[in-house]
Design a protein around this nucleic acid. Structure first.
Lengths: 257, 257
DNA sequence: GAACGCAATAGTGTCGACACTTTCTTGACT
DNA sequence: AGTCAAGAAAGTGTCGACACTATTGCGTTC
């Protein structure tokens, strides 16, 4: 008896309903996407313990697909698993984020260099065209679109490196820092240098100037990092400022004692 | 019926010093280790479909922990999942291996550079001591030990980079190429330059000469790659030469028709 | 004799149940 | 009053079962 709850917390998956394609309902995949969304949006808060039963109820599926999704998320570093105690939302400290950005910088620089060495001219053209196609309205879009376009740009570079492992790595990193990037894009400190930056990258690619491109990438990510620290601080404030029941309770207990 | 595979533990988990999710000795974990072992030893052959029921019988557990293990292995790139058709052993083409080695080179070089920039003197000393402690009997050990010691050496560099993400990445890559590395170490073409190489790395580290160290790492991995191609060819031959039932059946069918 | 479709089989995806572990609650003892 | 222990409650880890999908084998038709 499949109880199909769609109105509840499942509201995360909007345009996924194609009556045409006989796509298997695949609860696991939907659970994965939904939970990841909750993680990215801080609906599930850092450090919090994840209740499988509660999740399975709110998604209208049994615990099995929930656990499959959580295992996947654990491999990807979103959550951690303590035996017999369950899954916990991995708390992303500032430090942890910086480590991720550093890794991203490493991967992206390497990808750019390999692209310069290996890509065909017409492939470099694809990069230029991709950028030219979005540059016009770039800054006037909503944050989500900007983010997607930016990720697409960098993923394309990874693809043109000819090494699928780099693409996979970058995609994984992107997923993990997406939430903070979105926050940062919406943050007042978000700079207008993005456009210049991307144009510079394209120019360096066309010239096959690996050094120049890597320098730009490094600088850019470096710059982003400092902006990110402020954004993260604000974000955490926003998340934990509205009454956090568990936290309050713990404090009250201590105070009363 | 329970196939208890935990003997020579070192062969599969040489240097598990990772911040990754820690698990206890539950069924899932055992299944994960066992299946991974089968994968790296080609007991489960590239491209083959994985039968969950069969696996669960041979391990004496239900399908649930098997599926959890397989999901994890899928996130890590060992197997792939096709909806409604199940898990397949990912066929590691030569090309795919080269991509992995390239990624490894990128990560290791970056780690070395960061270590040179950041590590304390006494941390560099740890690296030197690690190497001095194993250098004596290094070449006279069985392949598994050599492999574990080598992985430990490189993981230590990653640790000294101060970025846990690099450690995690390297550990994951190591797991995926371990099977071929072991084969390669046992292969006649395995060179004696290993000792010189590691000593050179240590020397460069002590001098904080990032360029020198990265050059050594690149050269070394480059060299390994060509040796690996031959080793892989031999390995695949060895794996597929003894009758492969599925394959033979398919061929017979075609021939008879 | 070959292509097609239908039935039988094998195998995955998901479920609800239960055992065991951890955490919380209550109440006795000092 | 405070501490500790025993029991209750909550929650995870694993199981066997079942529905549905893909594959295989067989018989029919042209």
């Amino acid at each position: 008896m499949t109880e199909r709850v769609e109105g509840d917390a499942g509201s995360d998956q909007p345009a996924m309903n194609e009556a045409e394609t006989r796509r298997s309902a695949d609860s696991s995949e939907r659970a994965y996407l939904t939970i990841r969304k909750h993680l990215v949006e801080f609906t599930l808060k850092p450090g919090e313990r994840i209740n499988e039963v509660q999740l399975s109820r709110s998604l209208g599926v049994s615990r099995t697909p929930i656990r499959e999704a959580l295992n996947r998320l654990a491999s990807e570093g979103f959550v951690s698993l303590t035996p017999n105690r369950g899954f916990f939302v991995r708390s992303l400290s500032t430090e942890g984020l910086l480590d991720l950005y550093e890794l991203r910088s490493i991967i992206e620089c390497a990808a750019f260099k390999l692209m310069c060495e290996r890509a065909e001219d017409r492939e470099i053209d694809r990069l230029r065209e991709y950028w030219e196609a979005i540059v016009d309205g770039y800054r006037d879009q909503p944050a989500d679109i900007i983010l997607a376009e930016d990720e697409g740009f960098h993923l394309l570079i990874a693809e043109l490196s000819g090494n699928p492992e780099l693409v996979a790595q970058l995609a994984s990193i992107n997923a993990r820092i997406r939430f903070i990037r979105r926050i940062q894009i919406e943050h007042p400190s978000h700079d207008k240098a993005q456009v210049t930056f991307h144009s510079g990258i394209v120019a360096a690619a066309v010239k096959r100037d690996a050094e120049e491109g890597m320098k730009l990438l490094r600088e850019h990510i470096e710059m982003t990092v400092s902006a990110t620290q402020q954004a993260l601080k604000d974000a955490l404030l926003k998340v934990f400022a509205p009454d956090n029941a568990a936290d309050l309770k713990r404090r009250r207990k201590v105070r009363d004692a």
